[in-house]
Amino acid sequence: MIDFRKVQFLLSAHAIGQLPAPVYPDIAFAGRSNVGKSSLLNRLVDRSNLVKTSSKPGKTQSLNYFLVEESLYLVDLPGYGYAQVSQQTRQSWQGLITEYVTTRSTLACVVVIIDLRHELKQLDRELVDWLRYLDTPYLPVYTKADKLSRNQQMKNAAALDAGLTLTADDRIIFSSSTGQGLDSLRSRLSGFARSISVTPPGEGFIAPI
């Protein structure tokens, strides 16, 4: 399994032309603003602040790339659904994410992060439906599980599953605070990464410096 702790920040891309060469699989992370995406990423790689967390929604405005173990890219996508940024900014983010998901040949999986405490939001359903339409692999992760009792976790997860037409095996219940679901997340992402065939550096592509 991939050692996600061997990670380093690589670059921030504000346009598709700035992406690193597709020499490793991409695992992208998407979610509504303030859903716990940064905290999940930090827990995944066992760092406290590799990915900057903020109480201000809309902080991530680029595709932020992290290199794991010289074998995998983690990609932090801009949060969606935050109304307090300009329409032009939202359209810019949406266009960048759309172009990335539809053209990145080495995209192995999109992790769709959803707050377990709340009912399913329309934007989350639309994202999952869109990924299904594109036949893009995705993994729903229900975050902030530590805020709920075990019984309430199961009840809320079942409601989200029904709204997204999923089974319990299709998603992960996760807490960045307690580490609940962490082993399963690492295992599933390692499997997605292995599913992508890439051209190693030095065999057709120039790796980023």
Score class of each variant (00 low, 15 high):
M1G: 15
I2E: 09
D3E: 13
D3M: 11
R5G: 14
K6G: 02
K6V: 12
L10E: 05
S12H: 06
A13Y: 05
H14V: 11
G17A: 09
G17M: 04
Q18G: 03
L19K: 09
A21K: 07
P22L: 03
V23C: 14
I27W: 00
A28S: 15
A30T: 13
A30W: 12
G31V: 10
N34Y: 04
V35T: 13
V35R: 10
S38Q: 11
S38W: 03
L40G: 09
L40T: 12
L40W: 07
N42Y: 06
L44E: 13
V45F: 07
V51D: 03
V51R: 09
K52D: 08
T53K: 11
T53Y: 01
S55E: 05
S55Y: 00
S55L: 00
S55R: 13
G58W: 03
T60V: 08
Q61G: 01
Q61A: 12
N64E: 02
Y65G: 00
E70K: 14
E70H: 12
L77T: 07
P78N: 06
Y80M: 08
G81D: 03
V85A: 11
S86C: 03
T89D: 15
T89L: 15
S92D: 01
G95R: 10
L96S: 09
T98R: 14
V101D: 10
T102S: 13
T103M: 06
A108V: 04
C109A: 10
V110D: 03
V111R: 03
V111E: 07
V112P: 08
I113D: 01
D115W: 07
R117T: 12
R117S: 11
H118F: 06
H118C: 06
L120F: 07
L120R: 04
K121G: 02
K121Y: 01
L123Q: 15
L123A: 14
L127M: 15
V128L: 15
D129N: 12
L131Y: 06
R132L: 05
Y133K: 15
Y133D: 12
D135F: 00
Y138T: 04
Y138I: 00
L139H: 12
V141R: 01
V141G: 05
K147Q: 13
K147G: 04
L148K: 04
L148A: 09
M154A: 14
M154W: 13
N156A: 00
N156Y: 07
A158W: 00
A159K: 13
L160F: 01
D161T: 02
D161G: 06
A162I: 04
A162K: 15
A162W: 01
L164P: 10
L164W: 02
T165D: 14
T165H: 13
A168I: 05
D169E: 15
I172V: 15
I173R: 15
T178K: 08
T178I: 09
G179E: 05
G181D: 04
G181H: 02
G181W: 00
G181E: 01
L182A: 11
S184V: 14
S184G: 09
R186G: 11
R186Y: 05
S187M: 08
G191N: 14
F192P: 10
F192T: 07
F192H: 12
A193D: 07
R194N: 13
P200L: 10
P201W: 02
P201R: 08
E203R: 10
E203P: 01
G204S: 02
G204L: 04
A207F: 03
P208M: 11
